[in-house]
Design a protein around this nucleic acid. Structure first.
Lengths: 144, 144
DNA sequence: CAGGCTTATTAGCTAGGCTAACTATCGTGA
DNA sequence: TCACGATAGTTAGCCTAGCTAATAAGCCTG
């Protein structure tokens, strides 16, 4: 494997650049029945967790609470998110994906990343393995 | 190597998710003397290319021309970009990084990815190699 | 039970995208 | 040659997605 020695100071700009550009690309390819990537991500997190308060969802999505208020409002407008009162703390609210929200998620699960999946399919198996490992590392970085 | 078989349809959402979240993180850590990541990226591309028309720069940055108009306007306000007339075609404009722009780029080259570089330094050498290869693949994807 | 913390929202700002429409210029074909 | 279509850039106007500061409501504790 002849360790290539990858200096973090050189990798950082390169990685940031790659991510910035690909992120633009992925956002441009927004097919998902008028749901943006951000909204979809929040809805996905909600379903994954079952139910969350706005604060918790904001933390998961790494945005500030007011930002999440807006995102949730949009999802509510479409009836994709349900809001139920917290059993003991009346300040808090419990958010969950509505039946409609679940349907939308299921329905578009394959469609939404079509562009990206198409590109990925054109890569070699080895490249996909690299990206597979990379995405795990990146997830971890984002959480740090 | 026991090929793991990475199905594109499963990798796509995972990768998109990783990129979306890390992108948020990187944008949050914006130290660069009030320059945003987008603005810095444009300025960097300009310096790299030497000189570009707005249209060319928009293509490089993968945004629409009106979007680039705005970005360039911000950079001009700060005197970081110079605008010279095209020698033969009076419709076109030649953009280049001004002396001030060059200085800013040099000055913040190390500072800007500090957060990310720090995180990367905490990874194993092997993980960095993976990310190194991944960022090349991602660049290529973004260009596709 | 007063006062301080927490949760969520509202208000207001900015950046960064987009499309549509406009102006100016270029280049070409009748 | 000149009229007209194509191209470059900008303007106008819209939207999403972020942020901070301030507010309202509710909780908790000394």
């Amino acid at each position: 494997m002849t360790a290539k020695r990858v200096p973090p100071a050189q990798l950082a700009p390169q990685l940031r650049d790659a991510i910035t550009r690909l992120n633009r690309r992925v956002r441009q390819a927004r097919p998902v029945g008028d749901l943006t990537v951000t909204q979809l991500s929040a809805l996905t997190s909600l379903r994954l967790a079952g139910a969350l308060t706005p604060r918790e969802l904001a933390d998961v999505e790494r945005v500030q609470p007011p930002t999440m208020t807006k995102i949730v409002a949009k999802l509510e407008e479409r009836g994709l998110v349900r809001r139920t009162p917290h059993p003991t703390d009346r300040r808090q609210v419990i958010l969950s994906a509505s039946e409609g929200g679940q349907v939308v998620l299921d329905q578009f699960e394959r469609v939404r990343d079509e562009w990206l999946a198409h590109r990925l399919a054109e890569l070699t198996e080895s490249d996909r393995e690299t990206l597979q490992r990379a995405s795990e590392i990146l997830q971890q970085l984002a959480r740090a």
